[in-house]
Amino acid sequence: MAYLEIKDFQKSFGNLQVLKGINLTINKGEVVSIIGSSGSGKTTLLRCINFLEKADSGEMLLDNEVLLDASKEGKYNEKELREKRLNFGLVFQSFNLFPQYNVINNITLAPTLLIKEQAKAYKKDLISNSELTKKEIKKAVAEFIANKKVQIQENGLELLKTIDLIDKKDSYPCELSGGQCQRVAIARALALNPKVLCFDEPTSALDPELTGEVLKVIKSLKQKDRTMIIVTHEMGFAKSVSDKVIFMADGCIEEEGTPDQIFSNPKSEKLKSFLSNIDNKDG
């Protein structure tokens, strides 16, 4: 059963149509890689999925819930957008860590900022569904907040262990290597426990000897059944980590299939020439 379903995504910038009707389904726990030449619209697709860009037309369903129906609504307000965005995580090519926060605070910042709203909702719930006095509610809410903070901190440390950077928890991004920064960025995205985690060329900004450590972390996430969409130029990695590979060309999905089908048995001419170009470069 499809977990994430994208129907006919279209997106133009001025006269330039960048996405020309993208259809995509992803099952829960699946890892989908997107490959394709520069300018084919891979980043734009991820940005539309993450609501950084609004698709001009199309629909998106996640876990049977309609997240986007471009034909129906006008604009979402900021709060709706934020709630929708929280279903997804996005790891950028250039990390975009917050330079003024140390590693652990980079990871815990966003969840911590969400507490206030959660506490408000919790309080509202208590007021309407419990017999507690005002004072008791106040106490319960304070406890709720304190517990959340502890949880977020523990979760952050746990994530740092999984990316093997626990000893860097007090370092600032400027003191880390690119590979370490990207691992922190992954942990930061995971801290909000997104339903689908997206990566936009997570290793493109890294020196070749640093890509391995990042790819290893992503692979470990696959083991934990995280649903992921990975835009990548690392064909070897795409081959080994993906359940499904999508080849994009000129704003369309030109071909999709298992890694075997795509890399060993390409059908379309565009894919064939794309793959042979890469082989030439590598060789």
């Binding site: 900021e78 950028f92 250039s94 975009n96 330079p99 900022l113």
Partner: peptide, 27 residues
């Protein structure tokens, strides 16, 4: 301040004010 900082804040579910106050301001 790079666009990436705002976008990172957005995908992490921050409000506009939070992005300005907690991410952008000190930079």
């Amino acid at each position: 301040v790079s666009k990436g900082q705002y976008e990172a804040g957005k995908v992490l579910g921050m409000t506009k004010n939070q992005i300005f106050n907690k991410v952008v301001l000190l930079q």
